[in-house]
Design a protein around this nucleic acid. Structure first.
Length: 683
DNA sequence: CACTACACATGCACG
DNA sequence: ATGTGTAGTG
């Protein structure tokens, strides 16, 4: 069945990519060349040839890509695919970590720290090293720690952060926790040092695919190479060097060159026919990307007609920009019968989406924001997750400190710092310090605190946690009723009276309190539907926590129908829309000032150009680019220049909107003036 | 010793 | 808009 589809629906190189199942394969897939299609058909084809599901490992870059790939293969094969492994590198690392954790010195209830948890542990570590966390750029430090861990940097700076890093690492170990970097580095080290374990995984996964290969880091590359094992392994990587936009995360498109070196017998396939965009859009994209150096040779072409010109508009400020986008959407829906979900509005940063959101709300345009802080990052949800984590892993101090006095229960700063001291003295977790304290007390000694200390509150708190640990992990449900994690959690939230806490925190804003509480309710329902899913054979507290730890972005809701998609360019990778707006195409945003400011190297500007290229190539029929003349930054208004990349779009593809007359296109003379002005500005 | 109110600075992309 | 630090109160 699949064969017929392959023969009729694919072009020559695509067919070749799908049929080359054995041996190493490198696929260079230009934007819109049907990459996802090739990957899903390739997996379907492998299954057709009788390769067992369990022997296939498909590694992706985002959760969304993994989910999409899985559903598409499912649709294609109409099989259940219980044993097919399609996941992100991080999820795969976690899988190994879980399977081999006792060997690695972790208990199976380990916590996974996200960026926020990581930063609070770094703060703790700084304090312990008697440094002032307020004086350090925590975000930057956190990134440096990552670079050190993943081997992308060595200690050079004069500030002695090496000690802080050591304390941080010890902290993780004591708390039985890992960070996101560990999810990759620990499994890699394990496989590198234990050939028999590596061999076990090699035997299992005989066919490996890696999507978005240009965005893999060196660590991930080594992981893949190790799993492949030999230089004629069945490993297929798919990527496009022009779309490499994650170098700040350690991605290195030179992995493509490494692959060529490490797998000399590879077949190389180039997918260069673009099925997505009009040739105008494609030419615009090519015009921009051609300014980059050291690209892999490729010529994207399209059979489609030229289509509409790229429209460029210089709004007065960000609210004029938002109004313009909203009104264009309205107009196009009426004139060209587009639907709301045909529009994608892309911005460089999340914060830029705010203004546009407001305009959409005012104009009653339904929209969906992807990217931005995830549902799981919201304060109220993080609080509840911390309760779950501390129940699962009592040594998790970061979570403990978060909730020990949330809601207020009379355990204040001093008590907490005394506990912390005691724990640090013994190199243990706070939970351990608490146990010691209680032990001392029952044996008649005076514990940590004088008579009137917060010791009763502490006892009550730990008794409450212990009680729920019994309930959630020993699964002691009410007799006759099926045990449910969601039900236990509901009891817990009632027990701690989180609702009253929310009301207290937002006196004068009950709406907000209600909204936050409804988020919690939603969270509980998520657990409920997950644990009652008949396909879920492994529903438990640890599983749930692991699962949500890997979701860092809101890409869950798939009711995309009927909504304008508002997202960052990064989050839009892999998506396409009939109409695309690129908002805020200004110097300092694209390219982002951080990439030019610190003259790190020419490379970062090239990455920003690739980012712009990715944005352009999301469009199928029509592309709008807006660049504000002024924009509010923090408190004050600053004037802006258009992005230098705009001048790299071939001019004859552009139509200019006259400022002020939003819905009219300026005549050609005026357009030429604009170009001349812009040129002059850039010179 | 805990809690509240108020002043203060700060804000990129993703797993 | 958000979290963090500080001073004053019960």
């Amino acid at each position: 069945m699949t064969k017929r589809i392959i023969d009729t629906e694919l072009n020559e190189p695509q067919r070749k990519a799908v049929n080359s199942v054995d041996g190493p394969v490198l696929i260079i897939a230009g934007a819109g060349s049907g990459k996802t299609r090739v990957i899903t058909y390739r997996i379907a084809h492998m299954l057709d040839r009788g390769i067992p599901q369990s022997a296939i490992l498909a590694l992706t870059f985002t959760n969304k890509a993994a989910r999409e790939m899985e559903t598409r293969v499912k649709e294609l094969t109409r099989k259940k695919l219980q044993n097919l492994t399609v996941c992100t590198f991080h999820a795969f690392g976690l899988k190994i970590l879980r399977e081999e954790c006792e060997l690695l010195g972790y208990r199976k209830n380990f916590s996974i720290y996200d960026e926020t948890d990581k930063v609070s542990l770094i703060k703790e570590s700084l304090r312990e090293c008697r440094m002032n966390p307020g004086k350090v750029d925590l975000y930057e430090l956190s990134q440096n720690f990552s670079k050190i861990k993943t081997g992308l940097a060595k200690w050079t700076d004069s500030a002695n952060m090496e000690e802080v890093h050591d304390v941080y690492q010890q902290g993780l170990k004591i708390y039985n926790a890992v960070d996101f970097d560990d999810l990759l580095t620990i499994p890699l080290e394990l496989l590198e040092k234990n050939n028999d374990i590596a061999e076990k995984y090699r035997k299992k996964f005989r066919y490996i695919m890696v999507d978005e290969f240009q965005d893999t880091s060196f660590i991930q590359y080594r992981m893949m190479k190790l799993l492949a094992g030999k230089k004629d392994a069945n490993v297929c990587v798919v990527g496009d060097d022009d779309q490499s936009i994650y170098s700040w995360r350690g991605a290195n498109y030179e992995n493509i060159l490494l692959f060529e070196k490490d797998f000399p017998e590879r077949i190389e396939i180039k997918l260069e026919q673009n099925y997505r965009s009009t040739s105008t859009i494609l030419d615009a994209a090519n015009g921009v990307i051609s300014h980059n150096t050291g690209r892999k040779e490729k010529k994207l072409w399209s059979r489609q007609e030229s289509g509409k010109p790229v429209e460029l508009f210089y709004p007065e400020n960000e609210s004029a920009e938002a109004d313009f986008i909203a009104s264009q959407i309205r107009n196009l829906i009426i004139s060209d019968d587009f639907k709301y979900h045909d529009f994608g509005v892309l911005t460089r940063t999340n914060s830029l989406a705010r203004n546009i959101e407001e305009a959409f709300l005012a104009e009653n345009i339904p929209y969906r924001v992807s990217g931005g802080t995830s549902f799981f990052q919201r304060k109220e949800i993080k609080d509840i997750i911390s309760y779950l984590r501390i129940i699962a892993n009592p040594d998790d101090d970061v979570s403990l400190l978060r909730i020990i006095n949330t809601p207020r229960r009379g355990i204040g700063r001093i008590t907490v710092s005394q506990l912390n001291e005691a724990a640090k003295r013994n190199h243990t977790s706070i939970r351990d310090a608490l146990l010691r304290m209680n032990y001392a007390k029952t044996h008649g000694q005076q514990g940590l605190f004088s008579e009137k200390g917060a010791s009763t509150e502490l006892e009550e708190f730990s008794a409450m946690i212990d009680n729920f640990r019994d309930l959630m992990l020993e699964r002691k449900g009410e007799p006759g009723k099926p045990w449910r994690l969601s039900a236990c959690l509901r009891t817990l939230i009632e027990n701690i009276d989180y609702w009253s806490y929310l009301v207290m925190e937002h006196v004068r804003d009950e709406k907000k309190a209600r909204w936050k509480f409804s988020n919690i309710e939603y969270f509980i329902r998520m657990i409920e539907s997950w644990e009652t899913d008949p396909d879920n054979f492994d529903a438990g507290l640890y599983q749930w926590l692991n699962r949500i730890s890997l979701i860092t972005r809101d890409d869950g809701e798939d009711d995309v129908k009927g909504k304008v998609n508002l997202s960052t360019i990064h989050a839009a990778k892999g998506l396409e829309f009939p109409v695309v707006f690129i908002a805020g195409a200004e110097k300092g945003l694209i390219p982002h000032e951080k990439s030019i400011g610190e003259e790190e190297d020419e490379g970062s500007v090239e990455e920003e150009r690739r980012l712009f290229y990715v944005a352009i190539t999301r469009a199928r029929e029509k592309l709008y680019v807006t660049s504000c003349l002024q924009r509010r930054r923090m408190q004050n208004t600053v004037s802006c220049e258009p992005s230098p990349f705009l001048a790299e779009i071939p001019q004859d593809l552009i139509k200019f909107h006259d400022k002020g007359k939003e819905n009219e296109v300026a005549d050609d003379n005026e357009a030429q003036d604009f170009i001349a002005q812009m040129r002059a500005m850039l010179e």
